[in-house]
Design a protein around this nucleic acid. Structure first.
Lengths: 122, 122
DNA sequence: TGCTCATTTGCGTCACTATGCAAATGATAC
DNA sequence: GTATCATTTGCATAGTGACGCAAATGAGCA
């Protein structure tokens, strides 16, 4: 973590290291967890573990685990009501995180600094 | 993939299923790949595999593989110059993807529709 | 208290992924 | 052509993660 390949413009890339957290992507790298997130987002209302499990081919315990992982990553919130636990999407947080990533990457290398013929976005 | 837990407002969540691709997160779920992306972003200029490998504790072949995975995911571009391959960040694409995700999630459930006492973003 | 339902956790198994080494491929220089 | 350098690929191994089942925990109710 000491030498950089070419230049050392760490300063211009505002906090990209802090924003691009592996934990966030780790939580979302599983297809089933993405599916759960999408379902929960589409549902809009908080859903219990059982409700979520009804849509999944996997065991309820697995769904519970997946939801917990998403919760620990700050993507979902859990709220206990009676004997049920209702999970819901942390919309604002999630949106803010994604935008912060986009901003950090954009700030990192503004269009003018891009290399010619290298990062063509077809 | 047929029944939804509570409601079925699939229409309001503009293409969240298309935007939240597991493949994207899968590519970024490895800490070493995140580190490579950060380094490459901070570097701004395209870097060869050897240059990138100099900063990593892992074998050069591993770095090559990681870069290929990021390239296949559309996060990096590879450009061959002589016997070297220079990788660079697809800034615009990456930023666009992240913003699209944020937009899709935001559109999915605007603040007014949020459940009271459920998705508090403290 | 005992019972039932919802969720979580322990644990063994299976699949996948990351890793390092060595060999293969591709490209330039001699 | 051969030699050399950069990168990729094949392969074996080790580590990690997902999964299902069963048991444990927690909460309400009779």
């Amino acid at each position: 973590m000491s030498k950089q390949p070419d230049s050392d413009n760490t300063s211009c890339c505002g906090g990209i290291e802090d924003v691009l957290e592996p934990g966030f992507f780790k939580a979302l790298c599983d297809p089933n967890r993405i599916a759960l997130l999408i379902r929960l987002a589409q549902c809009c209302d908080p859903c219990s573990v059982s409700q979520m499990a009804r849509c999944c081919p996997t065991d309820l315990s697995v769904v519970s685990r997946h939801l917990a992982i998403l919760r620990d990553a700050g993507i979902l919130t859990a709220q206990k009501r009676g004997k049920e636990v209702f999970y819901s999407v942390r919309y604002s947080e999630l949106v803010r995180t994604l935008r912060a990533m986009a901003d950090a990457i954009e700030t990192c290398c503004p269009p003018g600094r891009e290399q010619p013929g290298s990062q063509r976005d077809e």
